[in-house]
Amino acid sequence: ALAELADEWKTFRWDGLRVLISAGKPDKRRIFFKTLEKLGTVEFFGSLADDKDWADRLESEAIRQLRAAGKTLADDAVAELVTRVGPNLRSLANEVEKLVLYVGDRTEVSLADVQVLTPLQKLAEAFALGEAVGSRDLVRSLRVLDEELWVIRTGTDKKRSEIGLVYGLISKFRLLLLMKELRRTGLIKPARDYNAFRTQVALIDQSELPADKRFNPLAGNPYPAFQALKQIDRWSSDELVHAMDVLLEANIQLVASGLDEAVVLQRAVIEIVGTKDAEMATA
C-alpha cells in the first residue's frame, strides 16, 4: 500500500500543498521513505541517549546555561548533575533553572546543592543502584533498591524486573574490574574531572585495548567508565571478584529457589557492600 502511495505522490501536483509526516525509527530501505527524500525534506531528531557523547554534550550545556546565569559549577557537581539528569536536555534546563533560584546570591553551585535539589530522572534511574553500590554507600544502596522493588511490584514500569537489577549490577562490577585493571597497567590514571578523563582516553592506543567491546570499557560512552574510575579505590580486586560471585548466586536464587526476591537482593547488596568497609569508604 505504501509503495502504491509513493507512486501516486511522484506524479501528484503539490502546488500550494504541504504534508507533514512524523514517525519514529523509519525504515530507510523502503520505497516510501526514499520517495519522501526525493520529493521533500526529511529531518531526523534522534534521542540524545543514542549519542555516545551525550554526557559530554550535557556537561557542556549545563556549564553554558549556568554561566549565562552568572553561576559556576564545581567539578564534582557537574558529574553529579549529569548522572542525575541523564540524556535529556529539557530536564537539564529545568534543573539548572531550579539550581540558579536555589543558590540565590551565591556564585557557585556545589555538589551538596545538586544532591539536595536534583532528583534522578527516569532515564538516569536505571543507573542509580549501580552507582550507589559502586560507591559503597550501603544506606543509599538499600534505599534505591527498595525504590526499584516498589516500581517493579506496583507495575509502574513494565520493563523493570528483579533479574534485570542483578544484570545491571553485574555490568557495573564488570566495568569496575576492567577499570581497575586499566589503572593497574597504567593505561588510565586518576582524573580530576570528566574533561581530563576524556583527554586521557583520546590519547590511548586502541590496539592496547580489547577488540571485543564487551571487555573494552572505553569503546562506548566514556562517562560510565569515568564514574567507575572514581570508585575503584574503594574496592580491592578480590572484593570485586567476590561481588561477581555473589551476583551469580543471587541470579541462581531468583531463577530457581523460590525465595522472596527482595530478600535475595537485599542480602546480595549487604554482602557486597559490607557494613564496616562501607562505613570506612563513605567516611
Rank of each mutant, 00 (worst) to 15 (best):
K158E: 15
D76I: 01
F44D: 08
L123Q: 03
K71M: 11
K71Y: 01
T83P: 03
L48E: 11
A74T: 07
G86Q: 00
L165V: 15
F127V: 09
R57M: 09
I170E: 13
A112C: 12
R84E: 11
D113R: 00
L89G: 01
V100W: 04
Y167C: 05
Q65V: 02
S47V: 04
T118Y: 05
S91P: 01
T154M: 10
A69E: 07
L81V: 00
K122V: 12
E80F: 00
D146M: 14
D105H: 09
L129T: 06
L73T: 02
W54H: 02
L123Y: 09
R64H: 09
S171A: 15
A124I: 10
T118W: 00
L89T: 05
F127D: 15
L169P: 08
D105C: 06
D76S: 09
V42G: 04
V78W: 01
L89P: 01
L145F: 09
G155R: 14
I163T: 13
V114D: 01
A126S: 15
S141K: 03
V144M: 06
S60I: 07
E162W: 06
S91C: 07
L66S: 02
P87W: 12
E162V: 09
R67F: 02
V109E: 04
S110H: 15
V133I: 05
A79W: 06
V82C: 02
D56G: 13
I163A: 11
L89S: 09
R90P: 03
K172H: 08
A124K: 10
E108T: 11
N88S: 13
L73Q: 06
D76P: 01
R140L: 07
K98C: 01
K158Q: 11
V100C: 01
L66A: 06
R57V: 08
D146L: 05
K38V: 11
L39Y: 10
A132P: 09
K71Q: 03
V78Y: 03
R153A: 11
F44T: 11
G46Q: 15
S141E: 08
A49D: 15
A49Q: 12
L66T: 02
D76F: 05
N88T: 03
E59S: 11
S135I: 04
L123C: 06
T83H: 07
L81A: 05
L66F: 11
R84C: 08
V82I: 14
A128G: 05
V85N: 00
A126R: 09
A93F: 07
W150L: 14
A128S: 15
E108I: 08
V151S: 10
R67C: 00
E61D: 12
